[in-house]
């Protein structure tokens, strides 16, 4: 598996507290990588290092290498360029209080696209990629806040893919959704991985098992185990992984 992101000896501190300890992991291209672990284990912190979301956190200190396609994202890359390449979808759908169309067109406009025809094409493509086009093609000018929770989350995915990132980060993006909306987004992820690399944080073991290709288990800031999902869920190497995924970790 070719890697798109390579992380070497990554350490992160929030003040005196070390939240990530010597993380080494390669994120494979065009695959879904699930980050699992109990609350506070560092999985979300780790994911946020991939698009420098931790830069905004006061007293946060990061050491080590995080490379996207070979480029050190903390040294060789402007943060705005990085975030164009590495999009993010959050736990709670957060559409902008504007029309469906403008939600999607927002990112491309920021990156300088003004041509109406081009924006129309991007909006349609993005909504189709997010399996939302058929549901909202006739109400693109309506406020996005009027959509259902599942639709809003898919709109956020459409908004993220509108700027054509290479990596999509998903932070518990289905945890607030009903099973049908969750299934739609999971199906969407397996389609999206043809064009993007997906890294997702999830507390749902079945979800990680169902849709990810690679699973990484974090505990107390350490990466305990990473491997192909079928191996991690059938025959984990580390007893701590086994305890966690089988629900015996209390």
């Amino acid at each position: 598996m070719a890697s798109i992101i390579e992380v070497k000896h990554l350490n992160l501190w929030y003040g005196d507290h070390q939240a990530l300890k010597d993380i080494n992991i390669d994120i494979p291209e065009h695959k879904i990588t699930a980050l699992i672990g109990p609350s506070g284990c560092g999985k979300s912190t780790f994911m946020k290092t991939l698009n420098r979301m931790n830069d905004l956190v006061k007293n946060c200190r990061i050491e080590g290498d995080v490379r996207l396609n070979g480029h050190d994202i903390y040294k060789d890359m402007d943060v705005n360029v990085l975030r164009k390449h590495v999009g993010m979808v959050f736990q709670k759908a957060n559409p902008f209080p504007m029309s469906i169309y403008d939600n999607i067109a927002y990112g491309p406009r920021i990156h300088g696209i003004r041509n109406k025809a081009q924006l129309d094409e991007i909006v349609e493509r993005s909504l189709k990629q997010a399996a939302l086009w058929d549901e909202c093609k006739d109400r693109l000018k309506q406020n996005a806040l009027g959509m259902s929770g599942g639709q809003q989350q898919r709109l956020c995915i459409a908004r993220a893919v509108a700027v054509e990132p290479t990596v999509l980060l998903m932070d518990e993006s289905t945890s607030a959704l009903d099973p049908i909306s969750t299934a739609k987004i999971e199906e969407l992820c397996t389609e999206l991985k043809e064009n993007y690399t997906i890294v997702m944080v999830t507390h749902n073991m079945q979800q990680a098992n169902r849709i990810s290709d690679v699973t990484a288990f974090f505990l107390l800031g350490e990466l305990i185990e990473v491997g192909e999902t079928k191996d991690v869920f059938l025959n984990p190497k580390n007893p701590k992984t086994e305890e966690y995924i089988s629900g015996r970790f209390g």
Binding site: M205, Q206, N209, F233, L234, N235, P236, T241, E242, I245, S246
Partner: peptide, 9 residues
């Protein structure tokens, strides 16, 4: 219970 790992094996 959706067992995994050694439980499932």
């Amino acid at each position: 219970q959706q067992p995994v790992a050694s439980d499932w094996r």
